[in-house]
Structures are given as C-alpha cells and as structure tokens.
Amino acid sequence: MAYNFDWSVLWRQPYGMWLLQGLWVTIKIGFLAWIIALSLGIVIGTLRVTPWKFLRLFSSAYTELFRNIPFLVQLFFWYYAGPMLLGDRLGHYVNQIMGLNYYVAIFALGIYTASRVAEHMRAGFASIGKEQYQAVLSTGMTQFQMYRYVIIPYALRIILPPLTTEFLTIFKNSSIAMTIGVAELTFMSYRIDAETFHGLEATTGAMFIYLLLGLTVVRIMGFIESKFKIPGMIGR
C-alpha cells in the first residue's frame, strides 16, 4: 500500500502550533541549561587548576562523574531518584511541582554539559603559558583576581570554537527530555504522528526546524567570536 504524503500536518492546526510550542520549549531548555552549563563549567574548570588540593579533587570528581555516565541515565536518575535525595518532606513537595520534568531536564542538561565546559576550560588554561600567569601575579593580583580578570576571559576566548559546539549539542541533547515527557520539539513530532499517522512528515519537519535552530546558533556564536577574537591570534 502506498504511503499518502500529507505535508499539511506541518502547518494545519493544531499540529503546526504544536511544533511551534515544541520549538519554544526546546529553545527555553537549551538556553537555560546553557546558562547553568557555562557558569558552573567555568567555576568547576577553574577549581581544577587552583592551588588547593581539595578543590581540585572535588572538581575532577565532578567532571569525571558527569561526563562518563550517559546523559539519558543521568536524566532518569534526576527525574526518578532526584526528589528522593531531598528527603521525605521536601521530596514529596518537589514531586508535586507542576512541570517538574521540564525543570529536571534543564537542571540535568545544565550540570551534564557543565562537565564538558569544564574540560574545555582546562584545555584553555593549559594553552596559556606559565609566564603569563606569573606576569599577572607579579603585578600584585591575588589568585582570584588573576583568574577573574585575566585568565578566565583569555581562556574563554581561546575555547570559543569548542564552546559553540557544546551550545549546539545542548539543543540536540534537549530532545532526550521527551523520554521524561517534556513536550519539546521531538515529543511534539511524535504526538503528531500518534494523532495523524503522518510521523514521516512530522519528523522531517522537526529535522528542518532543528537544522534552522542550529544554523541560527552558529550565526550567533560566529558573531560573538568575531567580536571577542583576540587580535593577532590566527583566525579559524
């Protein structure tokens, strides 16, 4: 039996709206998780190279833990076991939060991606010469001031290209949130399939939307890269 294409599921109501709603959720998860990933990743990555052994141990444990466990498993863990970690009363309360799965997805994706950002930070720090650090300290700055004002801004500029990749990946990984029922883009394309049996069109539509989203992110990051490019550094 031949398959009857019906591309109108991509814009016919309510399906077209569903895709847009899904896209909006995907964008929100991606952005919010990225804020967590970037800020936490910078902190963890920096702790990893500080002179204090305890902090170094803590941050390497963090990085190894989160980047070596599949993200799907982490997501399930936070969603099903996470509230229990908070103890009976708080856990019970948390379980009743409306849209808990959405928040868990942001949290899980954020702290998972933070471990990857931390690794990039470490590579960035390592590519800055030892004497550059000494030059900063020789002006009387403290360790904190040195990282805060010179080394972190410098390292971030060096690792902008891999950070672009991570930012893209976070949107792609956000599709995994459908496994805990978050109504993001992939979830919505499945939902259209379930209602109309036109999954092929719906999935193709979702693919194109992801592609456009990705290309937009690349454009934005390209703009940021050109704005923060270190003069004299070889362009990529």
Binding site: E131, Q134, A135, L137, T139, G232
Partner: peptide, 20 residues
C-alpha cells in the same frame, strides 16, 4: 606575598602582555 609583590615589578623575556 601578594602584598609584597605590589612593590616588586617584573618584566619577562616574552613580554607577557594580556593579548585580549
């Protein structure tokens, strides 16, 4: 040491300016 370094400047072979 941080305080002490405030009164001891240092200049390096490869300048070590902050390139950004």
């Amino acid at each position: 040491l941080y305080k002490l370094r405030q009164k001891i400047g240092m200049v390096f072979q490869r300048f070590e300016l902050y390139p950004h």
